[in-house]
């Protein structure tokens, strides 16, 4: 519509005037374009981080793993590496004080918060990035707290007494939510799932680029799943490039078979578990009984010999009737 109107406007003029009008319109359009804010520049591409190994296999004798992450970033860049576990929703009981007693006062359902959130950097993250950049890329716990959602099933908490007991997935008020988030972050830090390691990433400037490397011991307590490894190149308190890769942690062999069986055929698994335990108990009993019987002839032989010589009267084992 606008193009058609401009065309009709130009038809009013003839010869060189038409060209002058067209040039005027073009100049006005260019000036208008210059006045509007520029869209954000696309970040320069950065090669994805190299993970060694790319897949952690949790076999029967798994005891954690050593992981090396390295790659190349733009020149003079500080590096932040973030490792996030998938969010599957987590349920917690919150303890509170009722008189002198500490009791579970609420059940909290946490969503949109990663199960694991590890950050490694070449310097303290606050020194590498401005506050708004840290928030934008969710690189600290405040940002995680801002994005996560909490629902509670109130029982007797004094702070949200307006809610009725037995409520499912009620949204807590802002005061109570702040307490819950603080408690959630505290337990995550306590169990080692949320941690920050400044100065853990090594960087070397070479040929107009920054080579980085990170060595870490993968905790054996982390559950199987996909972990996203994201590398941020930071310069002038801004993120200038980023790239990511996925670290796969999965069970293999016998543990994988058992986990699969428990998930796909739970009742059969339950019966097998019960019968195996039953069998183990009876077999142990059988084993200890047969061992005792094997020892019996020699013991009774010694006893007879001792009786015949009048030495070594029968001991407490005989008294208790267990020597046979």
């Amino acid at each position: 519509m606008r193009a058609t109107a401009t065309g009709k406007f130009l038809l009013v003029f003839r010869g060189p005037k038409r060209w002058a009008a067209a040039a005027l319109i073009l100049a006005a359009a260019l000036a208008a374009g210059a006045a509007t804010p520029k869209p954000p520049q696309p970040m320069p591409p950065m090669t994805p981080p190299a993970l060694a190994p790319q897949r952690i296999a949790m076999g029967a004798f798994y005891d954690g793993a050593h992981v090396r992450i390295d790659g190349v970033a733009p020149a003079d860049a500080g590096i932040v590496v973030a490792i996030e576990g998938s969010d599957q929703g987590q349920i917690f009981e919150r303890k509170g004080r009722v008189g002198p007693i500490w009791l579970a006062v609420d059940k909290i359902h946490v969503k949109n918060a990663p199960a694991v959130f590890l950050r490694y950097a070449s310097a303290p993250i606050e020194a590498l990035l401005a506050g708004d950049e840290i928030w934008r890329y969710s690189l600290d716990e405040t940002a995680i707290a801002g994005h996560c959602q909490m629902y509670c099933r109130c029982k007797c908490s004094a702070m949200n007494r307006t809610m009725q007991s037995g409520v499912n997935d009620a949204v807590p008020d802002s005061l109570y939510a702040a307490v819950l988030i603080s408690d959630f972050l505290q337990i995550k830090r306590h169990e080692g799932s949320y941690a920050v390691h400044p100065s853990a990433v090594q960087t070397v400037s070479t040929n107009g680029a920054t080579a980085y490397s990170l060595d870490l011991d993968w905790p054996r307590s982390f559950a199987p799943g996909n972990y996203r490894v994201t590398v941020y190149a930071c310069r002038g308190h801004r993120v200038v490039a980023q790239s990511s890769a996925v670290l796969l942690v999965e069970e293999i062999g016998f543990p994988a078979y058992m986990a699969n069986l428990a998930e796909t055929r739970p009742w059969a698994y339950g019966v097998v578990a019960m019968l195996t335990a039953l069998l183990a108990g009876f077999l142990t009993d059988l084993l200890t009984t047969s061992l005792r019987r094997r020892r019996k002839p020699s013991a009774s032989g010694r006893a007879q010999q001792a009786d015949s010589t009048g030495q070594n009267p029968p001991g407490p084992l005989h008294d208790a009737g267990l020597a046979h």
């Binding site: 428990a262 739970p266 009742w267 578990a273 183990a280 142990t284 009993d285 200890t288």
Partner: peptide
């Protein structure tokens, strides 16, 4: 309870149970 826990909640770890059982059956004897 074992069968019901495995069937309903999928939280029975047979390997853990057997390791505990190895110690506990001997201990029980």
């Amino acid at each position: 309870a074992t069968v019901m826990q495995a069937g309903s909640n999928h939280i029975v770890d047979l390997v853990l149970a057997l390791l505990v059982a190895v110690g506990s059956t001997v201990g029980a004897q």
